[in-house]
Design a protein around this nucleic acid. Structure first.
Length: 129
DNA sequence: ACACTGACCTCCT
DNA sequence: AAGGAGGCCAGTG
């Protein structure tokens, strides 16, 4: 039985991001969400690039953890975050590889074999807001 | 409070 | 070239 007890549940973190009250320093998760929201349509970035932008280059796994913890209703384009080699390693969260690929292709992302054409679609997050 | 968990990445065979 | 082991560390139970 799963209650919605997670501390990173929908209203909580969305509230923090939207209002930016500044009551407390943004958590790692919140920083991830902010960056992911900035990924332009038709572009992708990587877990490692996001971690590096936050200033924790070695914590790319935490980026994946943050995205996995997102609530059902969100406006964060998480499908635009993939692994370094262009593979859709988070596909299971979107209902499988084909589904995640479709989400990206309808945004204009093109593929090279099984992976995204990184040469044309990789987007490096900006450090400054 | 402690142990385990990863939507990863980089080395090392 | 391809595959495996280890490091990473905030959250979660």
């Amino acid at each position: 039985m799963k209650k919605h007890t997670t501390k990173v549940s929908g209203e909580h973190f969305l509230d923090l991001i939207d209002k930016k009250t500044g009551k407390q320093p943004p958590s790692f998760y919140e920083k991830v969400y902010e960056i992911v929201r900035k990924i332009p349509k038709g572009k992708v970035t990587t877990y490692g690039a996001i971690a590096e932008t936050i200033g924790m280059k070695s914590s790319s796994r935490l980026v994946g953890q943050a995205l996995r913890s997102m609530p059902p209703e969100h406006d964060i384009p998480a499908q635009r975050v993939i692994n370094r080699s262009g593979l859709l390693t988070g596909a299971h969260q979107f209902g499988g590889y084909e589904r995640m690929r479709w989400l990206l292709e309808r945004e204009g992302v093109t593929f090279n074999g099984d992976g995204v054409d990184m040469e044309n679609h990789f987007w490096m997050p900006l450090s400054e807001p």
